[in-house]
């Protein structure tokens, strides 16, 4: 299962001929090592937010979840999500999502959750972001997707793909997962990826998936660290319909536990870009 293919860094911003050339190389080397491997060819950019315009994020792409949801968005999370500039803004080429420790409408923390629901969704493709993550006990950032039919097909039926989840208290490790009917929450299909001699909160890293018919490949930087196929899930495969994107910074909750006295606030997640190819 663990196909650690090495991608060349910078592939994704290459011109089309360059990409074609590289793909040829991939096809070649791919055949020489593993004949059954699916070759990725999502090369048409369909959504690109480089966060180059200071101010509020592009309203044509991003909406917001506001408040505390039900049971802390289903996870006993502690933050109140807002769309205030204290919690979300675009500055110097980055989307900044900031978790603050403050008393706000009954919550002890505020933060933000952006989503493309109703604005952008897609079936299959390459979904990629470049992020410098925050850190500390109880800090829980994520770049993820939900089935676009979630309002009529409740979770976990709609499906969830977690392209990147991170526990602030484990600064070298991220997780990629899928949730669906019969394999959700603690039973999700998941795998972690740990950096050697580096960590996710000191520099930018690329997190992405290549999602096609009956597979989701998870990669960090130039390392493909997991592939999930229908054979891996313990229930119905629901990843064959449109999904929308979410990017958020949660505080506390069952996945990470609460912040403690050593957690430093504010904590900011810097998103360099979000790109989707088909």
């Amino acid at each position: 299962m663990n196909k650690r293919n090495r991608y060349k860094k910078g592939t994704l911003i290459m011109s089309f001929p360059g990409l074609l050339l590289l793909l040829l190389i991939f096809v070649h080397s791919g055949c020489s090592t593993d004949d059954t491997q699916t070759v990725v060819n999502f090369d048409e950019l369909v959504l690109q937010d480089e966060f180059d315009m200071d101010g509020v994020p592009d309203t044509a792409v991003w909406g917001y979840d506001i408040g505390r949801g039900v049971n802390g968005w289903g996870n006993n999370e502690l933050q109140y999500y807002t769309d205030r500039t204290e919690n979300v803004k675009v500055e110097n080429g980055f989307l900044l999502i900031t978790a603050q420790q403050e008393s706000f409408k009954g919550a002890s923390y505020t933060s933000a959750r952006l989503l493309t629901k109703g604005l952008f969704d897609q079936t299959y493709g390459r979904f990629e972001t470049r992020i410098r993550l925050p850190w500390g006990q109880g800090i829980w950032p994520a770049f993820w997707m939900l089935g676009a039919d979630i309002d009529t097909n409740p979770w976990p039926g709609a499906g969830e793909i977690d392209i990147m989840e991170f526990r602030g208290q484990e600064p070298t490790t991220v997780l990629g997962s899928v949730h669906g009917p019969g394999y959700s929450g603690g039973e999700s299909i998941t795998k972690s990826y740990t950096l050697e001699n580096d960590r996710f909160d000191t520099g930018f890293h690329v997190f992405g998936i290549e999602w096609g018919t009956e597979y989701v490949n998870f990669y960090v930087d130039d390392v493909l660290y997991n592939q999930i196929t229908p054979a891996d899930v313990t229930g119905e495969w629901v990843f064959d319909k449109p999904f929308f994107i979410l990017v958020n910074l949660a505080v506390g909750g069952t996945f990470v536990g609460s912040p403690n006295g050593e957690t430093v606030f504010p904590q900011t997640m810097l998103v360099d870009y979000v790109r989707v190819y088909k």
Binding site: W135, P171, E196, D198, R199, T202, V264
Partner: peptide, 10 residues
């Protein structure tokens, strides 16, 4: 050692 993971100086 150069661990590369000694970070977030305060």
């Amino acid at each position: 050692e150069k661990l590369g993971t000694v970070a977030q100086p305060r």
